[in-house]
Design a protein around this nucleic acid. Sequence first.
DNA 1: GCGGATCAC
DNA 2: TATGGTGATCCGC
Length: 678
Amino acid sequence: MSMEGSDDNRWQSYNTVYTSAKAGMEGVDKEKVQRIVYEMSKGSKYFQNEERKESFIKYKVQNMRLHFSNLTHSDLSHYQKIADKRILELEASRDLSRIWLHVDMDAFYAAVETLSNPMLKGMPMAVGSMSMISTANYEARKFGVRSAMPGFIARKLCPELIFVPVDFKKYTHYSDLTRKVFQRYDPNFIAGSLDEAYLDITEVCRERNVKSEEIAQEIRVGVLEETGLTCSAGVAPNRLLAKVCSDINKPNGQYVLPNDRLAVMTFISSLPIRKIGGIGKVTERILKEVFGISTCEQMLDKGSYLSALFSQSTADFFYSVGLGLGKTDSPQVRFRKSISNERTFSASEDEALLHKKLAELAEMLSTDMQKEGLHGRTLTLKLKTASFEVRNRAVTLQNYINSSDDILKHASKLLKAELPVSVRLIGLRVSQFSGQKCGATPDPTQKTITNFITSGEANRKNSSFSDVTDHDFVTDTETDLSLDGRHTGQLDSRDPFDGDHSLDVNYQSSTLRKTAGAEKVRTSDNADASSNHSGCTKVLGGSTSFQGKFEGKNVNNGSNLLEDDRPNSCQEMIMLWLDDYKCSLCGAELPPSFVEERLEHSDFHFAELLQKEESSIHQASVPIQRVRSTESIDKANPRSKSCLTRRASIRPLIIFLLESSQSLRCWCSINSTYGRYY
DNA sequence: GCGGATCAC
DNA sequence: TATGGTGATCCGC
């Protein structure tokens, strides 16, 4: 398995989102698209950042694989029981009493533009700019052009491509027209973005005694008559499935999934997980590469592994996907939780210029807030550096603010602390609004059976309400407050099928930390690497010897490890980064710049070794035990001044591993804790 | 409360 | 030449 391809096939590993399946792109030569995207991108700052992110995802996958393969039979039977129980409970919550319809306009922006300029009909066209495309029509999609793709690449794919600038006023107008139609069928319909909506058509079907299929047809005809635009519809027992269904016969088509359990299970069984809202590029990769999961059905097959490696809420989400469950309630109220604006410009480190940009943003934000009468007390500054790294810096104030002066005053402080820095984007966000009491009691009538059944500890959250109705949130931006999935606010977050279930693995500590401190660490690491011409970089000096494991003998006597201050065991660990890139022990790939991640990786092997030693010494099984906190363990073992000077908190981990079980989950939770301590 | 990451459109 | 903007959520600090 070669780690790096030659220049000829490097493009294969440049994973962009542009090649994932989308309606109208079935006949596209994906390979050609990917090659061109790679050629146009390679060497750029953006590309380098993508590579950095890619390496990190690779690392995460490798790390999870390690955890995966370390699960013992006893672990697995334990987690299998948990999984079985949860799946049964979720199955019991299945609600087949509602009929949901999801409407999705076909290539909305592009269709509207064609409506106002019929000359465009039949020609490949994209709405957007050379920097970014919002929507492409179906003629353009044949060339591989699609939304979120920069225009200059799209033009390479399709030299004839016509560009039309975005015009949100126009789209909002047409969106309003469609919503008048939706209103007739469900006055409480849920408006997603400008071009999407969910309708509960249960009552209409019942009152008029017609099939959902006919209602869907009627709505689509109504939209066409009202706007001249086509749309697609999906009908299913819940919103999650309805959304999937609206994509099936796109464009200008519809698909009905009956309210029947067997039909749902059959439908879901072969469905690729990427079709599910909330499972994006990264989650798809992890599930595929770590667990071999690519269809929804496999979520249930691998239940024990999912329980072992993910948080309960995330595992629940995965199970619900496997069961074809989704939300069926109609939330009546929503409220905004934050308001923001951000602008991209040519990268600069000119302090005066940056301050000017900041002042403009503060002015705009203040205007927006005053329009809605909002006052907030948390201000977040967002920076994207010239190398595309994103930083957020926040401050929470005593008072609620919304004047541009107040915003600018505090934003300036946040910015000053980051200087000097070359940035290409500045953003400002205000949250924690006044008049929105956190912890308000939710409306009990909103509590669905699912909520009731699953409102266990892990799902309990504060809910807050405002008296803003759905439609008050329609703005003239591209994305309204979406009600789809994660965007439903806290009301829905009590539902386990909701929320952002992306990658909240238990050891999420392995995150990129690009703080000033980390930069310094990296600098010194680079210095080390440059002084080492062998092509290998040794890591984790100042840790316990790791050599024994690979020579088939124990390094330490596990039983006296606790008592031993081990002043002499601080030998350099024999772990190499082959070609300064690949772990010599497990093959995990991690570039030199990932200083902290490398250290953490080394620690993992270290702990793994201890674990193995321990299990060979103490064969007896020990009950699984949760660690309360590193602090409590520290207190329990005040004397252990180990030589692990790099981070003091690895000690509790070792103690824990020696004292208790080989429970992977416990190890994960500690790993995520100590990983942050430096 | 803060910061990073992920996701959707 | 050149890779967006807005909003939300989760998790572990």
